[in-house]
């Protein structure tokens, strides 16, 4: 394989078939942000069990009879994503430590904004019960109202905020 990206419609079609197969076999869609949640929950419960016991955020996982937070569907799925993307990068010759940023932005600032963006994105995903994959894409596939509301809120805000963030990308 070469370093060219796949045709977007073909990629979308394959992604759609994968999502359909996932729904057909397991009854649920794809996701990502849930894995972040479970990793943090596992970390806090292990390092500060008393702190976790006082916060209702952790209540589903605190206690002896509860499933360990890392033994979750999305955690295994995201591990797969990491591996699958690595495989794709390997085959398409794209494995390289780089920082990608807009033409007028220093890498340090790119790192700062990436961290800030990640912080907001994944915190927002906890509030909305899902991110672009879990809430928007999978939600749209099963025609849930939440899926469409979340999708419009994410992309609508993205367009409105794009003007203010143009120095980052253009």
């Amino acid at each position: 394989m070469n370093t060219k990206y796949m045709n977007p419609y073909l990629a979308g079609f394959l992604l759609g078939l994968l999502l359909l197969a996932t729904i057909f076999i397991t009854g649920r869609g794809l996701g990502a942000s849930g894995a972040f949640k479970n990793v943090i929950i596992a970390g806090v419960i292990t390092t500060a069990p008393n702190h976790a016991a006082q916060n209702p955020f952790y209540q589903d996982y605190v206690g002896k009879d509860k499933e360990p937070p890392l033994k979750a569907w999305l955690v295994f799925e995201v591990l797969g994503v990491l591996f699958g993307a690595f495989l794709s990068g390997l085959l398409s010759n794209r494995l390289k430590w780089t920082t990608e940023s807009g033409p007028h932005l220093k890498p340090q600032w790119r790192w700062f904004f990436a961290a800030l963006g990640g912080m907001l994105f994944i915190a927002g995903a906890q509030m909305a019960r899902g991110c672009t994959s879990g809430a928007a894409l999978s939600g749209m596939a099963v025609l849930s109202t939440a899926g469409f509301v979340t999708m419009m809120a994410i992309f609508g805000t993205g367009y409105m905020a794009a003007f203010f963030a143009r120095r980052l990308w253009k």
Binding site: V78, A114, G118, L120, G124, T132
Partner: peptide
């Protein structure tokens, strides 16, 4: 919560350039 969470995600998207799945 879906709307407010979505708005926060939108800001995170434009600043960070990724969504959770694609960042992985």
């Amino acid at each position: 919560p879906a709307i407010v969470g979505g708005v926060i995600m939108g800001i995170g998207f434009i600043l960070g350039g990724y969504c959770p799945g694609t960042s992985i």
